[in-house]
Nucleic acid binder design. Structure first.
Length: 565
RNA sequence: GGGGCUAUAGCUCAGCUGGAUAGAGCGACAGAUUCCUAAUCUGUAGGCCACAGGUUCAAAUCCUGUUAGCCCUACCA
């Protein structure tokens, strides 16, 4: 594939003596409006060197640039020099590349031989899977897919919240008010019920909190009863979560949660004491982070038990040893920014250079119109309910618009779940958002179904096409709609790399949304299955290329692409 | 008190390392279906880019301050 930007820079380099090639490459930009061309060179910087107006520089430079077969036109427009690539050359290159690579188009071997750990979802056991949990789950899983597509060996970890004082609370609550049969029949709601009751009672009787802490300490020390109950809670919870993960199509390579690192904590503490990074204060141990403008980090409580941060430190060290990661990514809410800054600094203080490879990828909060999501106050929207409702709504629409469709159930699931996931991955992850049923169940405009529908339409055209794509004459593609689409297709690979660099799946979501808009425009104003065989071939080739790209894009944000809907 | 994030159209949001008239979708209004799926497309209206300074040939974008909202700030996670 020809690098047209480089070609542009070479042409400019021949006529500009005062700038280095690299400087020219950096200055070249892509015009906002595609009608202006494919690349533009602003002449402002040269103005101070030549002591002439940028407009004059642009027009005089253009005259001395040699014409080149790759460019349709090179024009001075005000202070810019605009380069427009020869359309038939670009069309042929792009489309043939897509048709050749198909589901690998846009992929890369950038990450060959490098391991990337991605921690995502990380739900708390014994608590319901609510709407807020979709964020880490989908952002993380999408990053997992994006990094894999770029050739990295990726390891997805569900760092289950299966340890800590909350389990002491649950044990106390269970022993006081629990009902084994009810919990086995209906685990999460029952566990939640007694957990909520615990908090109500603890308000009146604070000694319950002490009791809970004591039970967690017993759990950490391997007390038989504590371990038996904890195992039960974990088992029944996991079983229920699996249903949601199945629905979302999300997978993990490891379910090593917080408890997994329990045995390794003493070793870590010993190491920290030896390295002298901790100080002892009234029985509790902490790391002084004041020199780094952070609050001190408490590592062990005065009763000797561990905290969240202790387990994250242990897990990071374990992952380095086990996976020798190139990057160790944590998809966790922005409330924990300080927590991550603290422990990554501690890793650094312990002398591990790989501290810099530990990356916290934060995201904003999900709220409800009535206020913030709160399990204890009953302000909860269960994720499974949202998914099921979206599937139901999709079924209704199918019955209305396409009642003869085969496997309606499967398609309804793909489209319904896809719409929820798509919405989740649409905005910059750092933004907070308010959940709304109306917004989630709307399937028009910039939505998952919109993009999926464009894919289904492309598939439909291809089914009816009856052509073989040999010796396609790409110069026949001369309308703006087709060229805008082809040009956008060519950007796919860069978008994925950028999404990986920025840890931002929404870049992929927005890209395919825009691509679908361009396809729909093209589809509408360009008859594809025309009598002229040559013209038909060229246009079908565009449709086929689009189909592959949009499908690859959807796959990277973990959304299915049904062929009919 | 200290720190972090956010602020762009009535609503939900894009706007890349500063560059050519600030873009989408929803909602509103006006249109398009003898033709490949109307979950679609076309058009119109709608903006002191929170506010005030600064840097620059050039600022929604960078810097400083102010305001508002959310989050964090040692024995929860």
């Amino acid at each position: 594939m020809i690098d047209f930007k480089k070609k542009t820079a070479e042409l400019l380099n021949d006529v500009i003596e005062d700038l280095q090639f690299d400087e020219i490459m950096e200055t070249i930009e892509v015009p906002k409006n595609t009608e202006m061309g494919d690349y533009a060179f602003p002449c402002f910087k040269l103005a101070s060197i030549f002591k002439k107006s940028p407009q004059m520089i642009a027009s005089s430079l253009v005259e001395s640039i040699d014409s080149d077969k790759n460019f349709e036109s090179i024009k001075a427009v005000g202070p810019y020099i605009n380069f427009t690539i020869e359309k038939s050359i670009l069309s042929k290159l792009i489309i043939e590349e897509v048709l050749d690579e198909e589901d690998q188009y846009g992929s890369s071997d950038l990450g060959k031989g490098k391991n990337v750990v991605v921690e995502y979802s990380s739900v708390n056991i014994a608590k319901p899977f609510h709407m807020g949990h979709i964020r880490s789950t989908m952002i993380g899983y999408s990053l997992y897919k994006i990094y894999s597509f770029l050739g990295y060996n990726t390891i997805g970890i569900n760092h289950l919240g299966d340890y800590g004082t909350q389990f002491g609370k649950l044990i106390v609550a269970y022993k006081k008010w629990g009902d084994k049969e009810a919990i086995e029949a209906n685990p999460i709601p029952e566990l939640l019920k007694i957990y909520v009751k615990f908090h109500e009672e603890a308000e009146k009787d604070p000694t319950l909190d002490d009791e809970a802490r004591a039970w967690f300490t017993k759990l950490e020390n391997g007390d038989e009863e504590a371990v038996r109950l904890w195992t039960l809670f974990r088992k029944v919870s996991l079983k229920e979560f699996e249903g949601v993960y199945d629905l979302l199509g999300v997978e993990f390579d490891s379910y090593a949660g917080e408890s997994f690192y329990s045995d390794m904590i003493p070793g870590l503490l010993e190491e920290m004491r030896e390295k002298g990074v901790m100080t002892n204060e009234e029985g509790a141990e902490l790391v002084n982070l004041e020199p780094y403008d952070m609050p001190n980090a408490l590592i062990t409580k005065s009763d000797g038990s561990s905290l969240y941060i202790t387990r994250d430190l242990t897990a990071a060290k374990y992952r380095k040893e086990e996976y020798d990661f190139y990057k160790n990514i944590y998809v966790v809410g922005s409330q924990q920014n300080l927590h991550f800054k603290q422990w990554i600094k501690i890793i650094e203080l312990m002398g591990y250079e790989w501290a810099k490879d530990c990356i916290h990828v934060p995201f904003g909060m999900v709220g409800l119109e009535e206020g913030s999501l709160s399990t204890r106050n009953g302000r909860v929207v269960f994720l499974e309910d949202v998914l099921n409702k979206a599937i139901e709504t999709t079924k209704d629409i199918i019955e209305e618009k396409n009642p003869d469709l085969d496997n309606k159930e499967e398609v309804a699931k793909q489209v319904g779940v896809g719409s929820v996931v798509f919405q989740e991955l649409s905005n910059n992850r750092i933004k907070d958002y308010t959940f709304s049923w109306e917004h989630t169940l709307s399937f028009e405009g910039e939505t998952g179904p919109y993009v999926q529908y464009s894919h289904a339409r492309a598939c439909s055209v291809l089914r009816n096409a009856e052509v073989t794509l040999e010796d396609v004459d790409y110069s026949l593609l001369n309308n703006k709609a087709s060229f805008d689409l082809i040009r956008e297709i060519s950007k796919f690979g860069e978008v994925i790399k950028r999404a990986a660099e920025k840890y931002e799946p929404s870049l992929v979501t927005r890209y395919i949304t825009h691509l679908a808009q361009l396809f729909n425009r093209f589809y509408h104003e360009t008859p594809i299955l025309v009598d002229d065989e040559e013209l038909k071939k060229a246009r079908v080739a565009v449709v086929k290329a689009y189909k592959h790209v949009v499908k690859n894009g959807l796959s990277l944000i973990a959304i299915e692409a049904p062929e009919k809907m």
